[in-house]
Structure formats: structure tokens, C-alpha cells
């Protein structure tokens, strides 16, 4: 697959495989991320995978000191290009399978009715469509632990709200275009909210604070309002 590497100023580089949401491309992104994480190259500060790109933030101060005769970006670009060549086989279902209970009760789903009207479907049908697919966690971003998952059935794909809500409660499950996601923390947000999970998606006190990782396979299981209230652990 063709790619392109560009600098992120003097702070890093960005490898892009086009501007696309695609399982194969994302699998390649995550394979390279895993490889670079494993290599533990000196001066790498962060590896941030996204849908079809991977950004590496590096410590240019350290590179300038350790390799005074090499331009830091050129040095890292060559190093990364070498690793991309070595990736020949990519496993598409590398993630864990995670089941996430979701309560789709109207009281926790302020946008369900509207999506039903717009799509001319029954709310129950929207819930069925949303909870009958396995979604891939393409990336985490926006908030600590926020999973960008996809893709939802075309019939329930819905554009973002024209103006975001000032406060979306933690655990809210939303749809934006063909993506679905879960708010790990109380935050402003513009996704269409169709339910809420009692699970805590982000817990800073845990050794692994984020419940989900890029590449995970997620299934939503509908639960009743009573079960939601009994199991609620969201902050």
C-alpha cells in the first residue's frame, strides 16, 4: 500500500496511507504502531495511530544531541520507512473481543427518537441494527479513552449535531456519520446520543486506564434501565 511521510514540524512525523476509513488500512497502521512500540527506538515520545495514519512524536532535543550530524526528521523518516518495508503480513482481527452493555432507554437516549423519524425506522429497529454488528475500534482520541468505532449500518448513519451539547454524560453512546463511540468522561460533544453504558471507559486509578485499545472488536448488548442502574460504575 502506498504511503506518504510528512513532518509535524520539528516535533515528529506523520505517516499517512490516504484519507480513508478502511479496515485493511487501519490494520496496517496498528501493525506498524505495535512494531515501533516493540522496538522502543530512542527519543520516541509518543505513537498516535488514527484511522489511516500514524504520527510519531520524537524528542528532537535529544536527537540533535545524540546525532549532531543528522537532521532529526530525516533520521526518523528513514528509520520508519525501513520498518514499513518489513511489515509483510497484517492480521486484521488482532484485537480483543469486548462486550459492552448499553441501555437504550429513552431517558438515556436523547437523539434516538429523532434518528427514528429521520430514518423512518422504529426506535426498536435502530437499537437492533446498532447492537447486531461487531465494531472495530479504529482509534482512540478526542478524550482519554474515547473509542472511534465503525462502521454502523447505513440506515442509522447520522451527521453530527449542528451545535454540540455543552455536557454529554460519561458512558453516553453516540453516532457521528458512520462512526459510533462512547464518551468516557463528562464532556461537551456533538454526537447523536442513543444510549448509555454502565461501564467505566476510563479510570485513571487502573494500571491500564482505558477500557478499550485500538484494534479491539466491540459488541453492544442491550440492557434494561434497571440493569443499567444496578451496574452503573461510570464516574
Amino acid at each position: 500500500m502506498t504511503y506518504d511521510i510528512q513532518p509535524l514540524g520539528d516535533q515528529g512525523l506523520c505517516i499517512s496511507w490516504g484519507n480513508t476509513i478502511d479496515v485493511q488500512v487501519n490494520a496496517l497502521v496498528l501493525a506498524l504502531t505495535a512494531r515501533l512500540q516493540q522496538l522502543q527506538l530512542p527519543a520516541v515520545l509518543d505513537l498516535i495511530p488514527a484511522y489511516s495514519s500514524l504520527c510519531m512524536l520524537f524528542d528532537a532535543r535529544r536527537l540533535l544531541q545524540d546525532f549532531p550530524h543528522q537532521q532529526p526528521y530525516d533520521y526518523m523518516r528513514k528509520r520508519v520507512a525501513l520498518e514499513i518495508q518489513k511489515i509483510t503480513e497484517v492480521n486484521y482481527s488482532e484485537g480483543r473481543s469486548v462486550e459492552i452493555p448499553v441501555c437504550y432507554d429513552q431517558s438515556l437516549a436523547p437523539d434516538l427518537e429523532r434518528i427514528a423519524r429521520q430514518s423512518k425506522l422504529d426506535p426498536a429497529e435502530i437499537i437492533r441494527l446498532h447492537s447486531s454488528r461487531t465494531y472495530r475500534v479504529y482509534m482512540l482520541g478526542f478524550l482519554p479513552g474515547f473509542p472511534y468505532m465503525g462502521t454502523v449500518d447505513d440506515r442509522i448513519a447520522t451527521p453530527r449535531l449542528a451545535s454540540p451539547r455543552p455536557l454529554v454524560p460519561a458512558g453516553s453512546v453516540g453516532i457521528a456519520g458512520s462512526q459510533t463511540g462512547i464518551y468516557p468522561l463528562d464532556a461537551p460533544g456533538g454526537w447523536n446520543l442513543i444510549g448509555r453504558t454502565p461501564l467505566r471507559l476510563f479510570d485513571p486509578n487502573k494500571e491500564e486506564p482505558a477500557l478499550l485499545r485500538p484494534g479491539d472488536q466491540v459488541r453492544f448488548t442491550p440492557i434494561s434501565l434497571a440493569t443499567f442502574q444496578k451496574n452503573k460504575t461510570a464516574p
Binding site: L8, G12, S52, S53, L54, Y148
Partner: peptide
């Protein structure tokens, strides 16, 4: 006018 799929940003972007 294309939509950009999300990708990484940092301080100074």
C-alpha cells in the same frame, strides 16, 4: 472541500 479523517495533533499544530 474534502473531509479529513481524524489524525494526530500536538502542541503548536
Amino acid at each position: 472541500p474534502a473531509e479529513l479523517v481524524s489524525s494526530a495533533v500536538t502542541a503548536g499544530t
